[in-house]
Design a protein around this nucleic acid. Structure first.
Lengths: 194, 194
DNA sequence: CCCTGGCTATAACGCCCGTCATAGTCTAGC
DNA sequence: GCTAGACTATGACGGGCGTTATAGCCAGGG
């Protein structure tokens, strides 16, 4: 029986996502991830036999799906509501961690790949960004935005929020998020008005 | 005499900025920074007696001032020209490094600070972001943008570009930059039109 | 000519890393 | 009860880390 209610494997992935969002992938050791999830080191190699890369990949996908779920749900009420949910989600993470945590997908995205080939975690990060953009773009199109404009705006929203979260951490303030939020909200309102 | 023309100290700082922009701060060792700058390890501790933190801080400030110089110059021709220069600068870094390098300021911004106090490199990152925003906002105000709107738009530009650069690296494509560029250009045109 | 002070060379300190191997424990199903 | 397989415990491997200490080089000024 596992110590805490949930099965270990998922706890390890969720904990890894949290740690990666704080310190980055290379600064997070497998030993620390195991300890953070109250799991033995041996278990991580039992559940993730490909090692650190596999764990990182699953952490990225886990975060991606978690955010996408929230996005899908809130986008039912329209793009403006979806944007608000997206902003609030990241604001919550930044504030509740006292400006220590951010987005694990971004953290993985800026890791340099080795000279030969692209690591799976980086591919997963690209796919997650793509998914978030696609959800936003589809909703924008459903609400009257022209197709090309919808794609561009969706990319801008994801990029701006990711960048803003990082700026908030550096400044230890949510002011960047407040400013970005207002600009993006106005943009979405204008794009869906026609 | 130093091996290559320039004094060692500056070469170390510039090289550190490049390496940090690729691998992040914690994944970049002082030994590698020294080797990359063709300088002996001992020299790094001679020039930067506070160690890694000091070197990181100077690398962030170095990049900040380098970008600010380009921004100041191009902003003389107006906010749209400044934005173009900002975008082209990062596009060049991403493309010329084959999607391996990004922004060292962002890389430092997402490093988790220790429980006690904020490391100087993180403070420097916040100041650099602030400086870039201030330059853009001032130019926007000079060209007819309302004050609050100028601040918000400047923050959005910096955040969006930082986020977009990271997305380009993950996707190994400049498409995000192309999309973000079009959106931001339209925004700046609209804000300075009145 | 020597000496001072900026720079380099080399080695060591203790620590943590990713990964692997091996042996042990526990539990579910027969 | 017993066996198979899922999980855990433990320790080792080679290697890189940040940092410090110490001794050596070598130009320039007196």
């Amino acid at each position: 029986m596992t110590r805490s209610g949930k099965p270990s494997r998922e706890r390890i992935v969720a904990g890894a996502a949290d740690m990666i969002s704080r310190r980055g992938l290379s600064a997070t050791s497998i030993r620390e991830m195991a300890k953070h999830a109250e799991a033995p080191l041996g278990s991580t190699y039992h559940y993730f036999p490909e090692g650190k890369q596999q764990l990182a990949t699953e952490a990225v996908r886990f975060t991606g799906e978690w955010v996408a779920r929230s996005l899908r749900k809130e986008l039912e009420a329209g793009p403006a509501a979806g944007l608000s949910a997206f902003l609030d989600l990241w604001r919550g993470i930044v504030v509740e961690s006292d400006f220590h945590a951010g987005c694990p997908v971004l953290a993985v995205a800026i890791e340099e790949p080795p000279a030969d080939g692209v690591p799976p975690a980086l591919v997963a990060a690209a796919e997650v960004f793509e998914q978030w953009e696609a959800l936003l773009a589809a909703s924008l199109r459903e609400h009257g935005a022209e197709s090309e404009q919808a794609s561009q705006l969706a990319t801008l929203v994801v990029a701006a929020v990711e960048g803003t979260v990082a700026m908030c951490r550096a400044k230890r303030s949510t002011q960047p998020l407040d400013r970005t939020a207002e600009q993006l909200q106005a943009l979405i309102a204008a794009a869906t008005r026609r």
